[in-house]
């Protein structure tokens, strides 16, 4: 870069200056910049920079871009100011939004092997191994935290951060149960993680089980880092049909936990179907009716529920050749029909 004048500037704008400007602009990418840098380096050599301190917002922007494991291993230990900045909720949230989303894949045949992390970056799929070994089964994950189950001790649940390799054990469950369905979800308003699990109360009477006795499952919830013991979720207000849904697998959308019956469903004509939705913030379960195809005239449906981040997507197959795609926002509980897909048969003659 070149200085075009010194002192009070009175450049007469003329053809010459115009072309000079063009010349400078072109130069900036190539050699001129380099010259300045070289000059600069020689000037700076003896004069070690001493910026008193970077403004907090710049520091924030820099620390935000440091990977979690480096922050954990060294950055947060630099000084108290940095420690407090890093441990503040706004930093943790901002850092989370900067991180790459991906799939955590565990090999259940050999759970002590290193899990894979599959991420999409700039349109490319990247597969990497986590530098973290666990001998626990992954049940669920949320914002980079993993809910793990110790298969050798069915009551023991752990929350692990595979990046920082921190792990904490959750309080022991109050009931003797072999049920291993549990999920972790984030309550954004209170900024707390909560773990939800379902369980049976068998009362020690296994004969009834074998005789086809219909059991009711219950749901329990725990606020991570706060609760010392599990709390039952109130299901008194639910219909019997809705309570029966608790035996199904759980899945999460942002801030919500759901129970729904996946797969084949046989229904009496017009009988409503439900999905259960627990708002992890308020801890209230509601039953939301699920749309039926063809005005409920069928007696057999195939339902597939998908968690799509902030909403549920539902694929209903009404017969072999047509599907309906519905979406539901848990906040409103309203279903919207997105489209109907119909296969057209081309039978060769």
């Amino acid at each position: 870069m070149r200085a075009v004048g010194r002192g009070p500037l009175r450049v007469r704008y003329s053809e010459t200056v115009g072309s000079l400007m063009d010349g400078i602009l072109m130069d900036t990418h190539s050699n001129t910049l380099r010259t300045i840098e070289e000059e600069g380096n020689s000037e700076m050599a003896g004069d070690k920079t001493n910026i008193d301190s970077l403004p907090d917002d710049i520091l924030f922007d820099i620390l935000l871009r440091i990977p979690a494991q480096d922050i954990y291993n060294s950055t947060r230990l630099v000084c108290r100011k940095w420690y407090h900045m890093i441990h503040a909720h706004n930093f943790i949230n901002a850092h989370l939004h900067h991180s790459t989303c991906g799939l955590l894949i565990q090999n259940l045949r050999n759970i002590t092997s290193y899990p894979n992390f599959v991420a999409m970056r700039q349109g490319r799929i990247e597969i990497s191994k986590l530098s973290y070994k666990s001998n626990h089964r992954f049940l669920s994950s949320c914002n980079g935290l993993v809910l793990e189950l110790d298969d050798l001790n069915r009551n023991a649940l752990y929350i692990t951060n595979p990046t920082t390799k921190q792990r904490s054990a959750l309080p022991t469950f109050f009931a003797d149960t072999t049920f291993d369905r549990a999920v972790i979800a984030y309550a954004a308003t209170s900024m707390k993680y909560k773990v939800v699990r379902t369980f049976y109360l068998t009362n020690g009477n296994t004969d009834q089980l074998e005789q086809g006795y219909v059991e009711i499952a219950y749901a329990a919830i725990l606020t991570v880092g706060v609760d010392k013991s599990w709390r039952c979720v109130n299901i008194e207000h639910l219909s019997l049909a809705a309570k029966e849904l608790l035996v199904n697998n759980l899945f999460t959308t942002e801030g919500f936990v759901h129970w729904a019956q996946n797969g084949n469903v046989i229904v009496s004509k017009g009988e409503p179907q439900y999905v259960l939705t627990l708002n992890v913030e308020t801890e209230i379960i509601t039953e939301i009716s699920v749309p039926l195809c063809h005005d409920g005239k069928l007696s057999y449906y195939l339902y597939h529920y998908f968690s799509m981040g902030s909403y549920i997507s539902l694929l209903i197959s009404c017969n072999y050749f047509s599907f309906e795609v519905w979406e539901m926002k848990p906040e409103t509980g309203e279903w919207t029909k997105m489209r109907t897909l119909t296969w057209k048969l081309n039978i060769a003659r």
Binding site: I62, L63, I66, C79
Partner: peptide
């Protein structure tokens, strides 16, 4: 630039960061 600085700070010891940012260790 912040990204580049963060990249440089990866895998660095606490002491390195303190030196480069001219920060007194108050622990």
């Amino acid at each position: 630039v912040a990204k580049k600085m963060a990249d440089i700070m990866k895998n660095k010891l606490v002491e390195w960061v303190r030196r480069e940012f001219d920060i007194q260790n108050d622990y």
